[in-house]
Simulated scan of single mutants.
Amino acid sequence: MNRMRTIVFAILFYGVSVPIVLLAPVVALFGQRAFRRWVLLWTQYHALCARWIAGIRVRVEGAPLANPALYAVKHQSFFETFELVRMLAGPAVVMRQEYARIPIWGWAARRYGVIVIDRSGAAAALRQMMREAKAAGAEGRSIVLFPEGTRSALGEAPPLRSGLAGLYRAIGLPVVPVALDTARVWPKVGPMRPGTVTLQFGEPIPPGLKRAEIEARVHAAINALN
Rank of each mutant, 00 (worst) to 15 (best):
M4W: 15
R5V: 11
T6C: 10
V8E: 04
A10N: 01
F13E: 01
I20P: 09
I20V: 14
I20Q: 08
A24Y: 00
A24S: 14
V27Q: 05
L29V: 13
R33T: 14
R36I: 15
W38R: 07
W42V: 00
W42A: 01
A47Y: 13
R57Q: 13
V60K: 00
G62E: 07
A66L: 10
A69P: 02
A72H: 13
Q76S: 02
T81P: 10
E83G: 02
L88C: 10
A89M: 07
A89S: 11
A92V: 07
P103Y: 11
W105L: 15
G106E: 01
W107C: 05
R110G: 10
R111E: 08
G113S: 09
D118F: 00
R119I: 03
S120G: 15
G121Q: 08
A122H: 11
L126G: 05
A133R: 09
A133D: 06
A133S: 02
A133E: 13
E139M: 11
I143D: 01
F146Y: 09
G149F: 11
R151N: 00
S152C: 14
R161W: 01
R161Y: 11
R161K: 15
G163T: 12
L167R: 06
Y168D: 05
A170R: 08
P174H: 11
P174V: 04
V185R: 02
P187I: 12
P187M: 08
P187W: 06
R193E: 06
T196P: 00
V197K: 09
T198N: 00
Q200H: 08
E203G: 03
P204N: 01
I205N: 14
L209W: 08
I214D: 08
E215C: 14
H219W: 15
A221K: 04
A221D: 05
N223G: 11
N223Y: 06
